[in-house]
Design a protein around this nucleic acid. Structure first.
Lengths: 141, 141
DNA sequence: GCATTATATTAAGGCTACCTTATTAAGTGG
DNA sequence: CCACTTAATAAGGTAGCCTTAATATAATGC
């Protein structure tokens, strides 16, 4: 707290994340202005064979209701559709439309590009080191 | 997007930030359960001589209205108070109470402790390297 | 085969952390 | 002293979640 001389790594992690996210999200907006950052959780945890809402919510660590709204949006945008689950009539499978699949591939390209740019900025050895340190913090801090 | 084999640094930055934030916020809750993460912006940008709401909002990059609510809360909790600004009768200066000052010092301790633990986990050379890389990303990405 | 319990989804409403668009009050320049 | 700006606040809105409850269907035990 209170602006301190050399910024804390805690604060730097946040700012670096924001910076990188902004660039990613600019790319996403260029693809489709309707897609918001929160929708990325859906693409991130989707499965090509189709997935149930509950499982999608669980993977994204949010409630089925919250995930349901995100899926509603993406369905409305034409990226997903819900089909009956043949194995359980209570459930429906969420699957990609062709447009959804194309959007996913575009999303990958945007992120891969950002990762490549970061590796160029830092040098690939240090980028790999950054990857390892962050992984370590997540696992063991 | 879509769970990829070695996670992207973009995602790792976010998760590492969340992990560290959780630890910081646990410490803050132990101090005062009423204080929420959003209040940290106030402590972070306060000035001991007193500061106007508008300037505080500007430093924290949010609207005066949003900052006003955070300051209202902290005033209610007894950490801040608003006194007339002798140089401009439209304005009021936000100043720390003694409790607010003590809370700020406790907050510093919590964060410094977290930073120390991270340095121990990674080793201080690598921790310094992490600091430099994050700073680089923020500045030049 | 039927009641009980569990699971999948959706509906309704709430909360936090912001924002935008007025208002009100008090300064300031010509 | 009058137009204009600035400081703060009020009112109401939005995104991104959450909790609690309702509804439909399934699975299980007797």
């Amino acid at each position: 707290m209170a602006a301190t001389h050399p910024p804390h790594v805690h604060a730097l992690l946040y700012e670096a994340y924001l910076r990188v996210s902004d660039v990613v999200f600019e790319g996403v907006k260029a693809m489709d202005v309707r897609v918001r950052p929160s929708h990325s959780a859906v693409f991130f945890h989707m499965e090509h064979e189709g997935i149930r809402l509950g499982r999608l919510a669980e993977k994204a660590q949010m409630t089925a209701q919250a995930m349901g709204e995100l899926v509603d949006d993406l369905e409305e945008f034409g990226y997903l559709c819900r089909v009956p689950d043949p194995t359980d009539r209570r459930a429906r499978l969420i699957v990609f439309t062709e447009e959804g699949d194309a959007a996913l591939r575009t999303g990958y390209k945007i992120i891969d590009d950002v990762e490549r740019r970061m590796a160029e900025l830092l040098g690939s050895d240090r980028f790999a080191e950054l990857h390892r340190m962050l992984t370590r913090i997540i696992a063991d801090f």
